[in-house]
C-alpha cells in the first residue's frame, strides 16, 4: 500500500527551493512506497523541479501524481534539460578595466544606438 502525501497540505501551493524537496526527502521512510499528490501545487521553481526529478529517479518508491499544468510544464522542461547536451555560452564577455570611478561611470553612461 502506497502512502499518499498531499504536498499542498504539508508544504503549501508553491515550492520555491531545493531545500524544501530535500526536507520532503528526509521525511520519507526508505521501507515505504509513496505517491506525492501535487494537486493544488500551482508553482514550482526550476530548482525545486530539479530536486523532484532527483527524488523520483533515485528511488523507485516515489511517484508524483496530479500535476497542475504549470508544474507539469516545469517538470517537463527540467527533464528535457537533463537530456540535452550541456550548453555553455561560448563567447566571453569583454572585460573592461576601469582604473577610476569616472572611467567606469563614463563607460556606463552612454546612449545605446537603436
Amino acid at each position: 500500500m502506497k502512502k499518499i502525501i498531499k504536498i499542498n497540505k504539508v508544504y503549501g501551493d508553491e515550492l520555491h527551493t531545493r531545500q524544501i524537496i530535500e526536507r520532503l526527502k528526509s521525511s520519507l521512510n526508505s521501507e515505504d512506497d509513496y505517491l506525492l499528490d501535487m494537486r493544488g501545487v500551482q508553482r514550482v521553481s526550476r530548482s525545486a523541479a530539479d530536486e523532484l526529478y532527483n527524488l523520483t529517479h533515485t528511488s523507485k518508491r516515489v511517484e508524483i501524481i496530479n500535476l497542475e499544468p504549470y508544474v507539469e510544464k516545469m517538470l517537463s522542461a527540467v527533464v528535457l534539460g537533463r537530456f540535452l547536451p550541456r550548453h555553455y555560452e561560448q563567447s566571453d564577455v569583454p572585460i573592461i578595466n576601469c582604473a577610476t570611478i569616472d572611467q567606469a561611470a563614463t563607460q556606463l553612461s552612454y546612449t545605446p544606438a537603436l
Binding site: 569583454p94 572585460i95 573592461i96 582604473a99 570611478i101 567606469a104 556606463l108 545605446p112
Partner: peptide, 19 residues
C-alpha cells in the same frame, strides 16, 4: 566587477579598487 547586459551591449567592468 560589474556585469551589465542591455539590449545591444554586454560587458564586464572591472571596477577601481575603491569599489
Amino acid at each position: 566587477a560589474l556585469l551589465v547586459q542591455l539590449y545591444n551591449r554586454k560587458e564586464i567592468l572591472s571596477l577601481p579598487q575603491e569599489i
